[in-house]
Amino acid sequence: MNFEIINPGTTKELLGAVNKLQKEKFRFGAGCTDLLMELKKKPEDGLTIINLSQVKDSSFSGIKKSAKGMRLGAMFTAHKIVVNEEIKNAFNVLHESAHNLASTQIRQVATVGGNLCTASPSGDIACALVALDATCEMLSTTGKRREINIKEFFIGVRTTAIGKNEVLYGIAVPANEKKTKTIHSNFIKIGTRRSMECSVVSLAYHIQVNEEGVIIKAGVSIGASAPTVRFAEEACDFLIGKKFKAISQKEKEEFAEKVLSYASPITDIRATSWYRKEVLFNISKSIFE
């Protein structure tokens, strides 16, 4: 493993470095856990790493709450998500996804931005943020800010909508609806062990219910089941207007079928496509059980 490294200390220096390297081979290093593992196995010649972890900018590494919701800097770590009580209360799906990510040690350094930009189909935090209908905010070397919905962020396996002259700057999660009384929010991660897993299948859901028990907003997404994390839009639409506690067996199955229609899983050494589909159907039903 051999590469050069640039250590910008400010956002301005960071954009300057990106601009300077436009014609070169470069990659960003955030928590570097995935990146170093990959480079140890497959070293790349002539690679420069732009090290993001020394950039001092609270918009890049901190958390900010507003009436509109919550904004996480791209360098906000999984550990910081896990220990944040407000996140646990308002967006449990995000808390659970971070808490079940890799290990204690990895979570200290792994970042939200890293989990998104790696664009792994089994990205845990990514899956939760898709269910939460988050917005990705990019900064470009020209100084322009660009926002896109996270559903448009993932293009394919390990490819995203970020331009070569852009940096993922932050992620905004919209506040829960004012009329929301109860939130059913969780992240179901399936693996063989209880810990240290890369999801074989994952399901993130964030379902908001009003005082009458009626579902007013629903976000459901699936991981490790398609080339990218996917938002199960039809399944979400199907739930709107229904009473959460009165969903029938038939409706549960219809919902699970709709979730499954977004899945096109592969067979690999961790599980077969058959298993992934079967489990996805079952855990989709289990939301209401």
Binding site: L36, S53, T104, Q105
Partner: peptide, 28 residues
């Protein structure tokens, strides 16, 4: 050497990290 076993755990500012996946420049 790939962040799976934890044998290389050290503390950086009191946080436990896998030193095999931690860039040395970042302890500056």
């Amino acid at each position: 050497n790939e962040g799976e076993c934890g044998a290389c755990t050290v503390l950086v500012d009191d946080a436990p990290v896998n030193s095999c996946l931690y860039l040395a420049v970042n302890v500056n």
